[in-house]
Amino acid sequence: MFEARFETGETLIKIVDAMKELVEDCNIDCSTTGMSMQAMDQSHVSLVALMLQKEFFGSFRCDRSISLGLNLLSFSKILKCASKEDAITLKAEDGGDVLTLMFESKDGSRVSEFEMKLMDIDSEHLGIPETEYKAVVTMPSGEFQRIVRDLGIIGDTVGIGCEKDGVRFSVTGDLGSGNVVLKQNTSADKPDLATLIELEEPVELSFALRYLSLFTKATGLSPQASLSMSPEVPLVVEYKIDDETASYLRYYLAPKVDE
């Protein structure tokens, strides 16, 4: 038996919305430690990784590890039947082929239940090596979204160059070029607006804006996003879902390299 209750159902809706354009079908793995998911996009250029620790949930029970094979578009459609304020409980029997979704209004006056068919999905799990990144930029997630959107007007590839006191996003396209520099800024009174740079050595890498734009669908999950980079390895964009329990949504993106 698996049962997990999201006290704030809106978080689950945001998580699914932040994954569904990148990944069509996926296995959500449930175990005694929590819920997790790892899936690549169809072109195998990016990967989305979700970790929700059991302590994140209002209540969590998982007697036996199970994989829930889900079509994220269908999942998202059913979740649209929930109200923003609802608590959402997911339930599945061991060896069952349906996922039960229960939506409860705040005052408990309305309870709805839906069943969704589960699928058998062959998923390839990739081993992600533990990496000490040379540069980690933490910035307001809305700022990252805006930069990706603005630079996407000019071109399709962004250069991200990180130095001690700032990070530069630059783009060149048919109609011209542009760049945005974000300087280190520790807004002590508003930590959500801070830009922090942890640097071991300067790093400069290029990435496809199309994927970064899909990653920014997670903006509503966290006020801050972090970008971790090292030379010649995939970028990690992380949105913390819950700081206390180390629950997160992470995206990995392979760099573009000069031929």
């Binding site: 195998h44 990967l47 990739l126 392979a254 573009k256």
Partner: peptide, 14 residues
């Protein structure tokens, strides 16, 4: 021109 790398070039099968 820059070439898009695939993730499999960095992350192996576990």
């Amino acid at each position: 021109p820059r070439k898009q790398r695939k993730l499999g070039q960095f992350f192996g099968a576990p």
